[in-house]
Amino acid sequence: MTVAQAHGSTHANLAAEPQLQRKPRTYWSMALHSLRRDLVTLIALGFLATMAALSLLAPVVAGAVGIGPNDTNPDNAFQQPYLGPYIQWRAGQDPLRAPLLLEKAGGVAHWLGTDQLGRDQFVRLLYGGRVSLGIAIAATILILILGVTVGTTAGFFGGVVDDFIMWFINTFVSIPGIYLLIIVTAMFKPNPITLTLFLGLFGWFGTARLIRGNVFKVRALDFVLAARSVGTRNARIMLQHVIPNSLPIIIVNAAIDVGILILVESALSFLGLGIQPPTATWGNMLNRANNFLFLRDPESGAFVALHLLVGPGLLITLTVLALYLIGDGLRDALDPMMKNIR
């Protein structure tokens, strides 16, 4: 029996114990099984996948609509969403408004309306999603790489290495992260790449601490001791045992981190420190729309820019919500012990 098999079967045995009549299943298939019954998490996953796909396909969609994210048309500013009138038109309720809107927009259907410069809100939201999601995901990957590497190193080697790494982490952690980011972004010019780097470089400390703690636990487990005793090299032990055992906690954290980072991006935009226009992000779109909250039509008194608030606000909230729910759902699914209590 190789060491790797020993590891796998340890878990299988553990999990199979209370349900001996079934055939033993692996940890991951069990997690998948329990996830399949978790409707909330599934919906969240579906939503996120849709958002990611739409954002990735932004240029295709923009091509289909026939307009780019930064194409202005000032004569058609603050157009209300075309969607409602279109449905009414199709249903034969209001034969006038939709064609009028279409004519005014030069034949482009602005499904979610236009902003102050007549830019298409729908296309901008998709492009904004690319940047917002892209930054959050890229930064999270950076966080994971740094956090897992450093955390595993510290936890596995312990001693002086651990002391030094922990001093380093404690130092950074005791500077409040939001200030660190504010200082850095207020003083350096943020663009998508630098912002990703800042978020990644100042975001991995918590992950590293978490992984380190987990590694301490795992290191003491029997199969790792066994691997050591048969002379397996450190790197191999880490890659084959320690990291896979920390994987659940890593995945759960990653989902939540992405959500937090989307919020951080929007918060920085509010403070004027995020990605700068004309590049669209959900954060800076929402922040700009906030300014137009009180914009009203001089004759009718109607609020004319509320549709700009709905899109980015809803997308940020729902995406972050989905990510948190996925994190929660995964935590439950990946924790084999949870199955015992029902």
Binding site: V40, L286, N287, N290, T317, V320, Y324
Partner: peptide, 15 residues
Amino acid sequence: VRVLAVVGNALPSFW
């Protein structure tokens, strides 16, 4: 509770 708790966390606070 899970949903409500995270909704509170997911709303951009400035908005």
